[in-house]
């Protein structure tokens, strides 16, 4: 596994280098993984990389790119919109020659439509926002401030909003709230993997059994 960079298109033209973790031995089957988003991305990163290690062992190349504004990216998150993220993942797929795609949780909203693939525990944009808004209401209450979801939602539509430490622009917020995973990918539900989803965990964790099950499901599909 090595870090690599790839040219990511910038909204105003030009491009920026973004990071990706890759297992690249020039093999025929090459899986692009669109990571889980925001807080869930942190909690699922270990599982994601564990799955990549297993797929590498099964003879499959894997790429895990950063979404612009996330992880190691130097782009400001608040200036991203959802179309930029879709373009970014298409560009990453092209650069690394991906043959298949896997979306994880909110990452399923940004898997390139031209690649066959899988959605692991897909989730709608509105569900992610609902949880982040709720976290903000709770932490405000803890700090002795009263906020409610409706007025935060109105604020987000006006000026954008910071949720769980992530600054989301107005356009991003409005578009993201309407997004649902495309129906053409094969869905891998948490029940297929066993145990409870690691995105639920209060702290980032790992689970070798779940990584085995997810990698096996993917390897069988990729080698079919």
């Amino acid at each position: 596994m090595v870090p690599a960079t790839w040219p990511c298109p910038l909204p105003g033209g030009g491009q920026a280098r973004e990071y990706a973790l890759i297992f690249d031995h020039g093999r025929e089957t090459r899986l692009l993984i669109v990571p889980a988003l925001f807080d869930e991305g942190n909690r699922l990163r270990r599982l994601t990389v564990d799955v990549m290690r297993r797929l590498d062992g099964a003879g499959i190349d894997c790429v895990l790119p950063d979404l612009p504004g996330c992880n190691e990216s130097l782009q400001p998150l608040e200036f991203q919109d959802t179309a930029d993220w879709l373009d970014a993942m298409v560009a990453a797929a092209r650069h690394f020659g991906a043959t298949h795609a896997l979306g994880i949780r909110g990452g399923c909203l940004f898997t390139p439509g031209h690649l066959p693939g899988w959605h692991y525990a897909p989730v709608k944009g509105s569900a992610i926002l609902r949880q982040m808004l709720r976290a903000r209401v709770l932490s405000a209450r803890e700090a002795g401030r009263e906020e409610d979801r409706d007025s935060l939602d109105a604020l987000a539509h006006e000026d954008g909003i910071v949720l769980a430490g992530y600054p989301l622009g107005r356009d991003f917020y409005m578009q993201f709230a309407t997004m649902a995973p495309q129906a053409d990918a094969t869905v891998i539900a948490q029940d297929d993997i066993g145990g409870s989803g690691l995105w639920l965990r209060a702290e980032p964790g790992e689970n070798p059994k779940q990584a085995d099950a997810l990698a096996a499901t993917l390897a069988i599909g990729l080698n079919a």
Binding site: D39, Q131, M132, R134, A135, R136, L138, S139, E142, A164, W199, L200, R201, A202, E203
Partner: peptide, 9 residues
């Protein structure tokens, strides 16, 4: 473990 994000979850 139960911070506001975890409670929201």
């Amino acid at each position: 473990e139960l911070d506001s994000m975890a409670v929201a979850g």
